[in-house]
């Protein structure tokens, strides 16, 4: 998964990995979101080159694809770190102190919502709701290995969880 390359010019010029996706969906009307989701699953994000390539193969205008990509919160147009931290900012989590947890994360990693740490390990994304309200405050950490959900977070427990990840990658 080449999700650390930030080059917008050139890079993955052939998009070989996308071929099967486009085989299946390129001519099926209404599949744009599915195509973009699978593209993001492969490359970790949607580069402009990928969007242009999809435009060529599907016949959908690049501007339209860009419009769809920027409309939905799930799509990322910048590469993300190894671990994507999805911090829940839903009502139950808010009422139970998710703002404090966010402060702790930001302080501990030195990044803000939407940013990636210098070492490329973590990206922080606030999300609207994860649906685990009884465990508020909650965060989900997504990586190539899958997703892990952590509940009942406190300022100290979240720092420990992040430190554990750091240790694994030392």
């Amino acid at each position: 998964m080449s999700n650390t390359c930030g080059c917008q010019n050139g890079g993955n010029a052939d998009f070989a990995e996308l071929a099967p996706v486009l085989e299946k969906y390129a001519k099926v009307p209404g599949s744009l979101i599915t195509i973009l989701q699978q593209t993001q699953d492969i490359y970790g994000y949607l580069s402009l080159d990928a969007i242009n390539y999809i435009a060529e193969r599907t016949g959908i205008m690049p501007a339209k694809i860009y419009g769809v990509a920027t409309f939905y919160a799930q799509f990322r147009l910048q590469p993300v770190g190894k671990y994507l931290i999805m911090l829940c900012k839903g009502t139950a989590c808010h009422v139970n102190g998710s703002d404090m947890v966010e402060e702790a994360v930001c302080e501990h990693l030195g990044i803000k919502d939407g940013e990636t740490t210098e070492d490329g390990l973590f990206t922080l994304n606030n999300v609207a709701c994860l649906g685990c309200c009884s465990l508020a405050p909650v965060m989900m950490v997504k990586s190539a290995d899958g997703e892990e959900t952590y509940g009942n977070l406190t300022k100290s427990s979240v720092k420990k969880i992040l430190d554990d990840y750091k240790a694994k990658n030392a």
């Binding site: 973009l36 939905y72 919160a73 799509f75």
Partner: peptide, 8 residues
């Protein structure tokens, strides 16, 4: 199934 993409 069609997955949503994060839009309330």
């Amino acid at each position: 199934i069609k997955a949503g993409a994060g839009a309330f």
